[in-house]
Design a protein around this nucleic acid. Structure first.
Ligand SMILES: [Zn+2]
Ligand SMILES: [Zn+2]
Ligand SMILES: [Zn+2]
Ligand SMILES: [Zn+2]
Lengths: 173, 173
DNA sequence: ATTGTAATGTTATAATATAACACTTTATAA
DNA sequence: TTATAAAGTGTTATATTATAACATTACAAT
């Protein structure tokens, strides 16, 4: 599916640092979110869906209070708990990730198979966050945990630096 | 030095999950901090040293306001900026690390060679944090970054789970 | 002693997140 | 269909983490 010839637009959907059809990308994200919720009996209510849309509007991590501002500009501005509850739902459903080093949230590009960790490349200049899946790192982490007799529940790898596009635009390190 | 027969107590100083002579461990940490500061012309003032000592009193990550409380119990309680400035100094000097997923701080067990990343095993039960150095993970991260043409500035890998001792005490996941 | 710099004290406030309780909507099932 | 329970949302207040701004003090180097 991911590499299906019927969906060539999504070829780079998982590499936001490269050019991609973002309207397609966000549409795809929202559709698969709806699908996932329907399949699992999760209720993707209006607030939750709107928060997810706002998060997907760019590939930059979005803070809870930025989301609040956005919601405020399209009607009545809700109180913080509204946004945090929506975020909690989306996190639980695996539809968004929290970037701890930024106190901010990013859409998940694989809202299904959370078998192992996902890792993040964070551009310090343009603030775009790319979610990466890397089996080699998965395995090294597992090996490390095994050596230490440590049972792994969560992995959070946040790699900060400069993305290719920003390097090309002269923002190298 | 690290494996010197004259200091067998430090054999496990870098694995707080295993039993170790913690009085030796903390003493060693403070001594090498003093040494590092002297060598580099950093000023390890009273506040800074006391904050570092408090952080090293356990291998659990300590929050800034917990540090404030402790300082308050041994004299006049300072205001937050005092602690945050001490923490900034210690972070810059490489003497402590910030654990993003906990908003808390932990002593660095190798305050010198920050050539590559350090990674953290965080026990969700006892809250002890172990700093790990793993060349294989370093290399996989470098390989990943190279594939994505990403210039790495900082790496933060925080692995949460259950440590061996807590497993043995029946707190397994 | 003088002077510039680094460190600390102090007050106020920003930014992020949650507790507690009332109310409304939705689902379920007599 | 209406009663009922559960889930979701609104609202107010507050907790937690962190920083801005400016005054004062300690220190180092002339
Ligand atoms: Zn996109
Ligand atoms: Zn960039
Ligand atoms: Zn110790
Ligand atoms: Zn433990």
């Amino acid at each position: 599916m991911r590499n299906s010839p019927f969906m060539p637009e999504f070829k780079h959907a998982y590499s936001p640092f490269k050019n991609h059809q973002h309207s397609q990308c966000i549409h795809h994200a929202l559709c698969s979110a709806e699908k996932l919720c329907k399949e699992n009996g999760f209720r993707l209510t209006n607030v939750r869906k709107r928060v997810l849309e706002l998060i997907w509007e760019s590939h930059q991590a979005l803070g809870a209070y930025a989301i609040l501002e956005q919601l405020g500009q399209e009607g009545v501005k809700p109180a913080p708990p509204t946004v945090y509850r929506a975020l909690d739902f989306l996190l639980d459903a695996g539809l968004v990730h929290r970037i701890n080093s930024l106190n901010a949230y990013i859409g998940c590009n694989h809202p299904k198979d959370h078998h192992h960790g996902s890792y993040f490349l964070i551009c310090q200049h343009c603030r775009i966050v790319a979610e990466i899946h890397d089996q080699a790192i998965d395995e090294e982490i597992s090996a490390l945990a095994k050596r230490e007799a440590f049972i792994v529940c969560e992995r959070a790898l946040e790699i900060s630096g400069i993305c290719q596009r920003c390097q090309e635009n002269g923002h190298a390190g």
